[in-house]
């Protein structure tokens, strides 16, 4: 066990965990931030996506010991970012969600896409969102919502 000082959504948080513990479980079980979801544990579904140092990251496979100083942003604080707000608003206005379980990860991935590519093409969207599974199949509306958010920015 070791203690790590993480910067999560702008706040410094100290956690004591086994160095191999994935960031996902530190967020969920230690910091009680359950907006970030467990879907597969092998970086194959994207439900656990958070931003680490501004990069969309599968938190289920990143050990807490490798985070270092890089700031972490989760779904709980994505509305503090103008791109995040636009994406969330587009998601709500397009009524994207069904069960909603994967949507934290979808939104975090979409925000990262728009931060780097403000006017994404269909191909950009397919590539960036290509690793996120939505079992309800909301992909059509996800495409539309990303385009709407891009227009708003």
């Amino acid at each position: 066990m070791a203690t790590y000082e993480l910067t999560v959504n702008g706040r410094k948080q100290a956690v004591t965990a086994d160095p191999g513990t994935p960031l996902l479980w530190v967020l969920r079980d230690d910091l009680k931030m359950t907006g970030t979801k467990y879907g597969c544990g092998i970086a194959a579904c994207g439900a656990c996506t958070v931003h680490v140092g501004g990069v969309a990251t599968r938190s289920c496979v990143v050990p807490v010991s490798l985070i270092g100083e890089r700031p972490i942003v989760t779904i709980e604080a994505i509305d503090q970012d103008p791109v995040g707000r636009a994406v969330q608003a587009a998601w709500v206005s397009h009524d994207v969600v069904q069960c909603g379980y994967c949507q934290s990860g979808q939104i975090m991935t979409a925000v990262a896409l728009l931060k780097h590519t403000p006017k994404p093409t269909d191909l950009n969207i397919e590539e960036s969102m290509g690793g996120n599974i939505c079992r309800c199949g909301t992909y059509v509306r996800i495409r539309q919502a990303i385009k709407t958010a891009a227009q708003q920015l």
């Binding site: 359950t34 994207v96 909603g100």
Partner: peptide
């Protein structure tokens, strides 16, 4: 629109897990 639309976009919707 869904009543749970917002909560499922900001991480506040709680599931069993």
């Amino acid at each position: 629109r869904r009543l749970d639309g917002r909560a499922k976009c900001d991480g506040s919707q709680k599931f069993g897990l």
